[in-house]
Write a protein that binds this DNA or RNA. Structure first.
Lengths: 247, 247
DNA sequence: CGTCAGGTTGATGCCATTCAACTTAGGTGG
DNA sequence: CCACCTAAGTTGAATGGCATCAACCTGACG
């Protein structure tokens, strides 16, 4: 059966980074929907079988990028949420640098390099928006370094939950104080550099102080302010600079 | 007195990422030398006084990018070594996201946004090379997340020293098994997320096993292979993908 | 020769890991 | 519809890696 590929989350997200006109949106949408693909839960994305890889976008579902050490230790270095681009910067890097995997069933697009470059050439507005999203990705990666390097377990988890909630919110995927949250505690451990056991206990702490409620696959944040201050969270890193005078 | 701004390290480094012709090099060099600047040890780079900021390159000396928490905890998220670009991706991000400071006296160039964009437009080869360097920077940032998230103190420090040695080597700044190493143990602590005391002890361990020798401002790595394996170091993340067939 | 930044050392304690067992929930086949 | 199975979550106890605190040492420099 033919799946409906819905590019809306990507368009919504990218619109945050530039004033995309109708024609920009249409061009991008049709390209994304042309190259839609599917993956199940806990599958690899971008393994060799795929042949020469292109630019990927997550249309729905959650994925992550991770790196591993020889002995099996694993670090999730980024989450890829609906609407987000996977790796504008990634072509040109040794593909063994890191790997991608899904956390849920995922619909994504993989646009061939050539087609995508043509698009960027024809629609410079899209190029500029994408450039900004890349800048934000870089900024997020720096924040993660700070997070695992300096924050204590309690702050660290709080920070991660804050970030995800806000990013989902940007994609229009929160409803009020709640959002879907399909990750396991094991994923949280790999992303924070903590042990599963300690993640479990720390989550209980956060729950007992009513900073979050997390059951089933649903996260609620009754008071975002309080969670942010528990996380020493500074929103600056998630948002582009205020109106940029330069062209 | 007029300082000699030598753009050679930048040109050498960038040449690793693309086949720059004589004319590319000349154009870039003259731009870099036009906008040279100076800083002393432990000074800020890119504070407000500088006005609207441009694209920065380190010509000589060491600097770092860091982030801090409200209570003073500090994480160095990147080192900026001679020849490296500071932040292609950075315009468009809230400037409070992170800060830059020098570790030694530094000579750098700060090319105004407009002038630089013109250069990239006229010399697409430079643009492509710079794009790849940015991709590597991103890759390095991911590796740092892995480093502080998963590696033990011993591996972590070994890894950092390895990386710096290899990056200096790329810039032509090593001679044999030694290189300059102006960082304090305090800087190492901030970069690894360890305490100064523990850095000190771990360095002693590394020394006692002859993996490094570090005295004065000089680092020697008698056996890079051994240091790499102690660090669980995989060089893939530092290098661009093998010859890229696509245009 | 005093001063100060950087480096070194020892003692102590906590945050987080590890190991191991147990519980719960969701899914599947008989 | 229940029995089984497996992944995920939870709990307790013991260990240890690394932080913290507080001295003390060293060398560079004015």
């Amino acid at each position: 059966m033919k799946v409906k590929f819905d590019a809306a989350p990507v368009l919504r997200k990218l619109s945050r980074y530039g004033d995309l006109r109708e024609e920009d949106l249409r061009a991008l949408r049709s390209l994304l929907e042309e190259f839609g693909r599917l993956r199940g839960t806990r599958e690899q994305i971008g393994a060799c079988e795929d042949g020469p890889c292109g630019i990927r976008f997550v249309l729905s579902g959650w994925a992550c990028r991770y790196k591993s050490l020889e002995d099996g230790r694993r670090q999730i270095v980024a989450f890829l949420l609906p609407g987000e681009v996977c790796d504008v910067c990634h072509s040109g890097i040794s593909p063994t640098d890191s790997a991608m995997a899904t956390l849920t069933p995922v619909v994504f697009s993989e646009v061939p390099q050539g087609r995508f470059e043509a698009l960027l050439h024809d629609f410079p507005t899209i190029a500029r928006a994408l450039w900004r999203e890349t800048a934000i990705d870089m900024s997020i990666q720096r924040e993660w370094t700070l997070n695992v390097g300096q924050r204590h377990a309690y702050e660290r988890l709080a920070h991660l939950l804050c970030e995800i909630f806000l990013r989902l919110n940007q994609a229009g995927l929160t409803s009020g104080i709640t959002c879907e949250f399909p990750m396991t505690q094991c994923d949280l451990a790999d992303a924070t550099g903590l042990s599963v056991v300690h993640v479990n206990r720390t989550l209980q702490e956060l729950r007992s102080e009513n900073l979050i409620s997390l059951q089933g696959k649903t996260l609620s944040v009754p008071n975002l302010q309080r969670l942010q201050s528990a996380a020493l969270f500074d929103t600056a890193y998630l948002y582009p600079a205020a109106a940029d005078a330069r062209a």
